[in-house]
Design a protein around this nucleic acid. Structure first.
Length: 692
DNA sequence: AGTTTCGGATTCTAAAGAAG
DNA sequence: TTCTTTAGAATCCGAAACTA
């Protein structure tokens, strides 16, 4: 019933049906003509593909040849001239304060300095369909605009304009049934001031939607790009269903905070620059106007999820957790945790729901660990499809993340919450968990850098957490062979990997993970700092290496997402506090141009990364020329004991009092920063949307 | 020297708009 | 309808950057 994807794979079979190798006019053999379809790898590598089953270049390079990536639709889309015209007009308007400027945009370098022609077209530029072609609005359409939407609004379900019949992607709408409607009016009158609508204008959404799909979709592949990037839905927000509108608001809010300073947000109207607050507020306002609970829909669930993301990024943890729980409750109401339900759904819809379920799963696990909460969702349904999906690469990454978090089992969560039941997490469990983290997510080739980063850093982060669980529970002491990596050096090794991962990373990719990345990095750095502190004064190679990594991590945090991370100062403070003389200690050290901790922002990216980033890292010792040495087992155990008792780890910890082990009261958070429940009203004093 | 990567010229396609 | 124009996707050349 869906559009047929005539392009779809069938790669393993001998020859693809639409015979790409034979070119219409060209003489078969003489490969002078361009191939109709290059294989995925050749496409990526930008090399000539011969279209064979394992194609030549792939065979030569010994890589897996496939034709999975569905080709996108070619040709212009949407209203052609109207769109361009309006885009130009908008730019002129914004640049010249609303006056129609007859200047060609190419030579226009007014107040809007740096918009380039190319970036204007290729990068998300808002296309405001609310304005339209200059020439008149036919009266009937005028009428339509004023009246049809009202009818639509009566329907609490979502509305989307009819889509073109042919879509390249396998997956499509993820929404309520689409009512059949006459064509959406494409040419609309300028929004009238007296419009009673309170809603935000649609053009803003499109922009953030593009950002979302550009940066966040791979880790949240839960909405249909074909649907939500269609400018037509944003033509008039009044025609949107209430639920959809809420979702758009929540999603925009989340996108803005998450990408924050990391991505240029070109849509900066000087006067009414849209901020995340406005969107979040608007979402909640709209939600109050109808019953969003009773006819439970995936849209409500998504909305709650994005509210969670929004508040989470703002470190409003109570609210974030609340909305995550709300989303989970919706999911449960929809029986999304029950494999049975999926059989009854339309397969496409089922896939979208699976993704949503797993997204909630991941988020819950991650957040539960961070905030020491309980989890409700389990590995109860099958994973979403990867290869048959519209975006196998992203989905591959997504599924990898799921597998990673599968290692975070209930024991992990309860251990991290400070459960006393030692039996739950013995050495075997710990070793197993660590192993599981490593075996998960092996197939990481072929996925985007952004996702790769997310997965890799998350994995190391979970390693760190697991290690801390081990240390805090005294697991290391019994482990002669340190099978689960329960060694003092372990965090240093982890840090090495993290540094390798993040140092080579593209800044934008690193930054697009929002605060989550900062949290993980700071957790890792915090643990590393603890370990180093135990060994303060040591000048062994391992120690120096660790110092360097810590330094690099701190630097990364000092300039992450375009500013200094809020976790940096507390981290530095923590390092300095009880035992922390190491920062000053090494002021003179040539390899570590550490600024005084009071001015972390002045860190520069001139880090001398150890050359041999492989195994045995040789770090030239400071002037003194102390011989490198490694810690003996006895040293390690002693230090680990210190560490576990010093209570610096994020974990709840054991102490010895008399003859008995005792649990110290749980520390509020594994992280070393003050809880921020309210956003500091830095911008314009939108107090966070209060009440409910 | 052999490989890999990737900017971007070029080609291809389908949608939009014009003309008949 | 058919024809023309054009946005945007796709291919893949060839220079530059790596690697051995």
């Amino acid at each position: 019933m869906e559009e047929e994807t005539q392009e779809q794979p069938a790669p393993p079979t001998s020859s693809r049906s639409p015979t790409p190798p034979s070119i219409p006019n060209g003489n078969q053999g003489a490969s002078d003509k361009v191939l109709r379809r290059a294989c995925d790898c050749c496409r990526k590598r930008k090399v000539r593909c011969d279209g064979a089953e394992p194609c030549g270049p792939c065979k030569k390079a010994a890589i897996r040849c496939a034709y999975l990536q569905p080709p996108k639709k070619k040709g212009p889309k949407g209203l052609r001239s109207a769109r361009v015209l309006h885009a130009l007009r908008t730019i002129d308007d914004t640049a010249s304060g609303g006056l129609p400027a007859p200047v060609s945009p190419r030579e226009h370098h007014g107040a809007f300095g740096n918009w380039g022609w190319t970036s204007a077209t290729s990068s998300p530029m808002q296309v405001d369909m609310a304005y339209g072609q200059p020439k008149s609005v036919p009266p009937d359409q005028q009428y339509y605009r004023d009246h049809a939407p009202a009818a639509m609004n009566a329907d609490p379900r979502s509305y989307f304009p009819p889509q073109q019949p042919v879509q390249p992607a396998l997956y499509r709408s993820y929404t309520e049934p689409v009512p059949i409607l006459p064509e959406l009016p494409m040419v609309l009158a300028p929004i009238l001031n007296e419009s009673k609508s309170q809603r935000l204008l649609g053009d803003r959404f499109l922009h953030y939607m593009q950002l979302f799909f550009g940066h966040m979709f791979p880790s949240m592949p839960v909405i249909d790009r074909n649907l939500y990037l269609d400018p037509r839905i944003y033509a008039d927000t009044d025609t949107l269903g209430t639920e959809t509108y809420c979702l758009l608001c929540a999603l925009s809010a989340a996108t803005i905070v998450q990408l924050d300073a990391s991505t240029p947000l070109p849509y900066l109207q000087p006067h009414n620059r849209p901020t995340d607050d406005i969107f979040a507020k608007e979402c909640l306002r709209e939600r109050k106007s109808y019953d969003y609970i009773t006819p439970t829909s995936t849209l409500s669930c998504l909305t709650s999820f994005f509210l969670f993301a929004y508040y989470g990024n703002h470190e409003s943890h109570a609210k974030a957790w609340f909305y995550l729980q709300e989303a989970i409750t919706f999911a449960e109401t929809l029986n999304m945790d029950d494999e049975q339900t999926y059989a009854k759904l339309d397969p496409v819809e089922a896939q979208w729901r699976r993704r949503l379920y797993w997204l909630l799963f991941i988020s819950e696990r991650a957040y539960a660990v961070q905030r020491r909460k309980r989890t409700r969702l389990h590995l109860s349904i099958a994973l979403p499809a990867v290869f048959k999906s519209e975006d196998p690469h992203s989905l591959n990454g997504f599924v990898n993340l799921i597998t990673l978090f599968s290692a975070v089992d209930d024991n992990f969560v309860s251990a991290w919450r400070g459960s006393r039941r030692q039996s739950l997490y013995n050495e075997a469990w710990l070793a197993n968990t660590q192993k599981q983290l490593d075996t998960a997510a092996l197939a990481l080739n072929n996925i985007s850098e952004t996702q790769h980063l997310d997965i890799s850093v998350t994995r190391e982060w979970l390693h760190v957490l697991a290690w801390q669980i081990g240390v805090s529970n005294g697991l290391i002491w019994g482990m002669e062979e340190a099978g689960a990596g329960m060694r003092l050096e372990y965090p240093i090794e982890l840090a090495r990997r993290v540094v390798q991962i993040t140092n080579g990373a593209n800044k934008v990719a690193l930054d697009s993970h929002g605060i989550g990345m900062e949290q993980k990095l700071s957790d890792i750095a915090g643990c590393l700092a603890d370990v180093l502190r135990c060994t303060a004064g040591d000048t062994s190679a391992t120690y120096m290496e660790g110092k360097q990594y810590l330094d690099i991590l701190l630097r990364t945090l000092s300039s992450i997402r375009g500013k200094e991370s809020r976790y940096l100062k507390p981290l530095l403070a923590k390092m300095e506090a009880p035992l922390g003389h190491e920062v000053q200690d090494h002021h003179h050290h040539q390899h570590l141009p550490v600024d005084s901790p009071q001015h972390p922002a002045s860190f520069q990216h001139t880090v001398a990364v150890p050359h041999d980033i492989g195994h045995e890292i040789i770090v030239t010792p400071p002037e003194g020329g102390l011989r490198p040495r490694t810690w003996s087992m006895a040293d390690s155990v002693g230090m680990l004991r210190t560490l576990s008792m010093s209570g610096n780890l994020g974990m709840p910890f054991l102490v010895v009092s008399g003859e008995e082990w005792e649990w110290q009261p749980r520390r509020p958070s594994g992280r070393v920063y003050e809880e921020v429940e309210m956003r500091d009203g830095g911008d314009g004093g939108w107090g966070m949307v209060q009440a409910v």
